[in-house]
Amino acid sequence: MKVALVMGSISDWPVVKQTASVLDDLKINYDKKIISAHRMPEHLQQFAKNAKDEHYQVIIAAAGGAAHLPGMLAANTLVPVIGVPVFTKSLHGVDSLLSIVQMPFGVPVATVAVGNSGAKNAGLLAAQMLGMNDDSIYQRLVSYRKNQSEEAIRSNEQLE
C-alpha cells in the first residue's frame, strides 16, 4: 500500500513535508517525487498512467500558482488525487486553491486547505481512504483522533 507525494518543484517540499510527517506518524508508506506539470508533461503523463501498476492507492499533489499538477495527474489516472494548494506571495494561495478546486465534471480532485493545515489534512484524508480497506491503518487513525481530543482537553490546564 503506497501513497505518492508529488510536488511541482523542490520549493513545495516544506509544505509537503507536513503531509509526510502525518503519514510517518500513521506508519503509511509513501514515495516523494518532483514532477512539474509545465516543465515535465511527458513524465507527468507516464507517472500518472502507471500509478496503479506501481501500486499507488492515493496521489497527493501539491502545487502553487497556476497549480495544474493535481488536475493533470487526475486527468491521466483513476487513482484518487488529493490536491494541496501551496501558499503564493502574490495571491496568498487563492490562485492555487481555485486552480485545484475548480475541476471540470468527470475529473475529480479532492482539495484541502491552502498551506500546512491542508497538507496535514491531505495525509489524514489519504489515511482515511486507505483505512477503509486496512484495519491496522483504521485503528491507528482511531488512536490519532483520540490523542488529538486528549491534547485539546489538556490544553484547558493552560487557562488556569
Rank of each mutant, 00 (worst) to 15 (best):
Leu91Thr: 15
Gly8Trp: 09
Glu160His: 08
Asn133Leu: 13
Trp13Asp: 09
Ala67Gly: 01
Asn133Ala: 13
Arg39His: 12
Ser143Phe: 04
Ala74Asn: 10
Asn121Phe: 05
Lys52Cys: 01
Ala51Ile: 03
Gln18Cys: 13
Pro70Leu: 09
Gly93Gln: 08
Asn156Glu: 00
Ser9Gly: 14
Asp25Val: 04
Gln148Tyr: 00
Lys89Phe: 14
Met40Val: 01
Gly118Ser: 05
Phe105Leu: 10
Val86Leu: 11
Leu78Met: 08
Leu73Arg: 02
Phe47Val: 00
Gly118Lys: 01
Val22Ala: 09
His43Asn: 00
Asp24Met: 08
Gly131Cys: 11
Gly64Arg: 10
Leu125Phe: 15
Glu160Ser: 05
Asn76Trp: 12
Val109Asp: 05
Gln46Ala: 08
Ile35His: 06
His38Asn: 14
Leu44Lys: 04
Phe87Tyr: 14
Ala110His: 02
Val79Ile: 15
Ile10Glu: 15
Ser143Lys: 14
Pro41Gly: 07
Gln18Thr: 13
Ala62Asp: 07
Gly131Phe: 08
Ser99Glu: 06
Ser36Leu: 13
His38Thr: 11
Ala119Ser: 12
Ser155Leu: 00
Ala63Gln: 06
Lys89Met: 15
Lys17Glu: 15
Ile34Asn: 07
Asn50Ile: 00
Leu98Arg: 06
Ala110Phe: 04
Leu26Asp: 00
Met103Trp: 09
Ile60Glu: 05
Lys146Arg: 12
Val94Arg: 01
Ala152Gly: 00
Ser149Phe: 12
Ser155Asp: 00
Gly131Asn: 09
Gln128Cys: 13
Arg39Met: 12
Asp12Ala: 06
Lys27Phe: 12
Val109Asn: 07
Ser117Phe: 04
Arg140Asn: 10
Ala51Tyr: 03
Asn116His: 11
Asn133His: 13
Pro85Thr: 08
Ser149Pro: 02
Thr77Ile: 01
Met132Trp: 15
Leu97His: 01
Val3Trp: 04
His55Pro: 01
Gln102Arg: 14
